[in-house]
């Protein structure tokens, strides 16, 4: 069943038409990526889903219920880790839960340990490296009570080495905790490596251009990105993006 359903979504700012008639759905437990160039309105789409903006037209449904313009129904991981420097790692991770009600410290500590951050529970974010901070931000999103997690280009600020490592970590964590993920990226490889399904957006205004179901088996290993099948897919996706 579709957990998230977006129907006929349109949005413009003044005379700038950003999104036009966007249709998409995300099934429960699925990893869906929205792939598009910078400035294609991906972030606007997230703001609409998050309820920060109201669409001109269209509806956003969560579990069949209308959630257009409502906040706090999705969990969110932004581009920058945006950890609060005055909170310890443990308190940071629990922020999403705190906003909605109860804190579950036991699970939080367990997840911090699994993320390879054992011993950092009471450290402050200033003491962590960029990759570690992103892990903490992702755990915060995972721990939030909402079932859908939206990730907005979370690894774009990391170096190549850290990014690859983080992608793999993300996949393994996601398999363990079985949440639904809507992922935004402008990296074709990242999209291919992570997703069950890729939705390619066009620009000005953004529309859904094409949809790909990615057949790679899980769990996926690093070596996948060098396989000929992967490169074949990469070619196909690139062509789809450049095609006018």
């Amino acid at each position: 069943m579709a957990l998230l359903k977006i129907e006929h979504l349109s949005k413009s700012f003044d005379h700038l038409h950003v999104l036009e008639d966007i249709h998409l759905h995300v099934n429960a437990g699925e990893f869906v990526t929205i792939l598009g160039p910078s400035g294609s309105g991906k972030s606007t789409l997230f703001h609409l889903i998050g309820g920060l903006l109201k669409p001109d037209e269209g509806k956003i449904r969560l579990n069949g219920e209308d959630m257009t313009g409502k906040r706090g129904l999705i969990s969110y991981m932004p581009q920058q880790p945006t950890l609060f420097p005055w909170r310890t790692i443990l308190d940071n991770v629990l922020l999403g839960q705190e906003l909605q009600g109860k804190r579950d410290e036991q699970l939080a500590i367990e997840m911090i340990e699994k993320a390879g951050l054992a011993g950092y529970e009471n450290a402050f974010p200033g003491q962590l490296s960029g990759g570690m901070k992103q892990r903490v931000a992702f755990i915060r999103a995972l721990l939030s009570p909402q079932s859908l997690i939206c990730l907005d280009e979370p690894f774009s600020a990391l170096d190549d080495f850290t990014r690859l490592e983080m992608q793999q970590w993300l996949l393994s964590t996601w398999t363990t905790y079985q949440k639904t993920i809507l992922f935004i990226t402008h990296s074709i490889e990242e999209a291919l490596f992570l997703s069950d399904r890729i939705i390619v957006l066009s620009t000005n205004p953004a529309t859904v251009k094409q949809e790909f179901i990615i057949p790679f088996e899980r769990p996926r290993e690093k070596s996948l990105i060098l396989s000929s099948e992967f490169l074949q897919w990469k070619r196909e996706l690139t062509e789809s993006i450049f095609e006018r």
Binding site: G50, L52, R71, G72, S75, T82, S144
Partner: peptide, 23 residues
């Protein structure tokens, strides 16, 4: 960006103040 996160996560105005702006 912190404010943005809090709003996306569904923070109320009092939570936004107590958990972000004040500290």
């Amino acid at each position: 960006e912190m404010k943005h996160y809090m709003l996306m996560a569904g923070a109320k105005k009092t939570q936004l103040f107590a958990k972000l702006e004040w500290p």
